[in-house]
Design a protein around this nucleic acid. Structure first.
Lengths: 209, 209
DNA sequence: AATGCAAGTTATCGGATGATAATTTAATGC
DNA sequence: GCATTAAATTATCATCCGATAACTTGCATT
């Protein structure tokens, strides 16, 4: 059943179209079945033969590397930085807005599962992503708060960052519970985001009290 | 390094000793290499031949089931319930003490990695564990707080539980970052626990203000 | 010392997997 | 309409995997 039954005529796609189709389906496939799943099964779901994959990717690991690249680099939104640093609105509103759109990207089953699979596989993808979160999200947040308080934005402390990590982790774990473990949320995401943001702002205040 | 070439004399252990040795090593092995790793490699690390495993476990899945059982049932401490509910000490102290000993158990590389592998595999182990955390940890915590406030302990709300989940998740994610992703903590675990507990108590106060 | 039995090994089967080489087939340019 | 070229398939290899059966060996009992 190469062609999914209906059309016996094989489609011949251009190199680029085929390639991006492969990567896209590979994301869904590996997210659901894990990176140890076979290239044969992936090919079957694509409606093509398995050796064809090797005309587009030198090896399975190369395909996996492209999956990482596509998910984690491509889905990171450049305007997140601006949302956090836009001083025309109160910081609390900015943070609520940011985590609302951030979780729209991150709380996707494929994003989260691939992130977990990658973490267990032991490469540096997760380490690099976590570094990026700290530098592009958490440190800017703390800096914005310090600026709003009228204290030196660049004098942020380790404890302030760790506090931001706790709050960020609390929000993230909500996504893990609902998307990965299938737990029905007892209260909605908006409540979690709002109370987490408030918790962060209060915590920062207490640290600098 | 039980045999590994040097000593040609095979050790002959009793059934029970051998069995628990297999389970123990299987925990380390699967935690590090994942459940898709081969029984041959596990046997090699045990210094025995692969078919011997099948004289102790009917199938690989049965061995894996025993790994789950050993890690998640055996390592759950019965006195955790008492620690949370011991009204002879202030709730804040109780919670700090509880999360100190709880994280000593949970923040182990093998515990966390097996938990993540299991979650991605799709069984109900994680769902059951999460249910247990809610019923045996989070709900008791909120009930203790309500009792301390002189309000009906059993009238706890969804928002209170979700708040407790956020704090719990924040602490848990600290363990994931340090144990799984190898991130050096910027501030220590005691700080994270204390500020998280304070954050929870303040959050509950705000919800009932 | 001989015996019984379980602990442990050797040999092997059927199937799956990543990857390669050779072959076929559809689209494009002339 | 025909040749060219690249897309796609068929066939295949070496290896690995879970599992089973048959054989061997160490230890306790007598």
């Amino acid at each position: 059943m190469t062609e999914l039954g209906s059309s016996p005529k094989r489609k011949r796609l251009s190199y680029d179209d085929r390639r991006s189709e492969f990567v896209q389906k590979a994301i869904e496939f590996f997210a659901e079945e894990g990176f140890d799943s076979s290239t044969r099964e992936l090919a079957r779901r694509l409606g093509v033969t398995q050796p064809l994959l090797y005309r587009y990717f030198p090896s399975k690991d190369d395909l996996i590397a492209e999956v990482y690249e596509t998910v984690y680099v491509q889905r990171w939104r450049a305007d997140w930085d601006d949302m956090i640093s836009d001083r025309s609105t109160p910081l609390r509103d900015r943070l609520i807005e940011f985590y609302t759109v951030y979780t729209e990207v991150v709380f996707q089953r494929d994003w989260m599962r691939i992130f977990l699979f990658a973490g267990l596989k032991g490469g540096d993808i997760n380490r690099r992503y976590i570094d990026r979160v700290r530098r592009r999200i958490l440190e800017p947040i703390v800096r914005e708060w310090r600026n709003e308080q009228g204290i030196d934005p660049d004098a942020l402390s380790d404890q302030e960052i760790e506090l931001a990590w706790s709050v960020h982790g609390g929000i993230y774990y909500f996504g893990v519970r609902t998307e990965i473990y299938g737990q029905k949320p007892v209260a909605g995401l908006p409540f979690v985001i709002e109370s987490s943001v408030d918790s962060l702002l209060i915590g920062l205040q207490r640290l600098n009290g």
